[in-house]
């Protein structure tokens, strides 16, 4: 029914690869309204995550998320490092010692991630940050699970909502992060962190979709 430690590892690996593949896009977005390093920072971090996951030996989904968190914290730097690091750390705590992640667990992990990002970064929705992708994602995930959806549907709904939330940052004037220094001039540009959040969630959803369809087969 849910995702095993292998499924979670595979999903995080997939997400790491996809984020790295979006390096240039994220650099370009950050160049426009920030300092141009977001894609480079995440590529450095997620490359390190892939190396760490190669090590294996995880006793449950939570420990995969925790290693991801600590690796991101110690390799990404910038604003995104502590924020994504905290997100994965809180998600790991929320997952706890379950050995299979189901839809409810996914939602509580996403919610914990969002709360962690907000606790650290103090951004509110509408400030033009990754919070604008993550907030609707959590809400959509919650509705989907409430309607009986399983992990793939929950993550797909989260990814769809994150995409829309990220797109919606274009119109916003930034109040947090480097883009805020631009004031009104930050409007008209997609927030790089919101975009990377959407990319991450989409990759997790895609991985979950193929993982459960595979596990459905045997």
């Amino acid at each position: 029914m849910g995702c095993s430690v292998e499924d979670v590892t595979a999903a995080v690996r997939e997400a790491a690869k996809v984020v790295c593949a979006h390096r240039d896009e994220l650099v370009e977005l950050d160049r426009e309204i920030g300092d141009g390093d977001h894609g480079e920072n995440l590529q450095r971090g997620f490359t390190a995550v892939l190396a760490k996951l190669d090590g294996g030996g995880f006793d449950g989904p939570a420990s995969v998320l925790k290693v991801t968190a600590t690796t991101l914290i110690s390799t990404v730097g910038g604003a995104a490092g502590p924020l994504y690091g905290t997100a994965f750390l809180r998600a790991s705590t929320a997952v706890g010692d379950v050995s299979e992640v189901d839809g409810r667990v996914v939602v509580s992990a996403l919610r914990a991630a969002l709360e962690g990002v907000v606790a650290r970064g103090k951004a509110a929705p509408g400030d033009k940050t990754m919070v604008d992708a993550l907030t609707p994602a959590v809400d959509a995930a919650q509705s989907t699970v409430d309607a009986g959806g399983a992990v793939p549907e929950v993550l797909r709904a989260a990814a769809d909502a994150a995409d829309a939330g990220a797109e919606a940052t274009i119109a916003l004037v930034a109040r947090k992060g480097r883009a805020s220094y631009l004031g009104e001039r930050s409007a008209g540009h997609l927030d790089p962190g919101a975009r990377s959040t959407a990319v991450l969630l989409r990759a997790l959803a895609d991985a979950a979709g193929s993982a459960t369809s595979e596990s459905g087969r045997h």
Binding site: D35, D37, N41, S74, G77, G78
Partner: peptide, 11 residues
């Protein structure tokens, strides 16, 4: 020293 224009990590 972090990477160019990127803050260092906690480590």
């Amino acid at each position: 020293p972090g990477p160019v224009f990127t803050s260092p990590t906690p480590d």
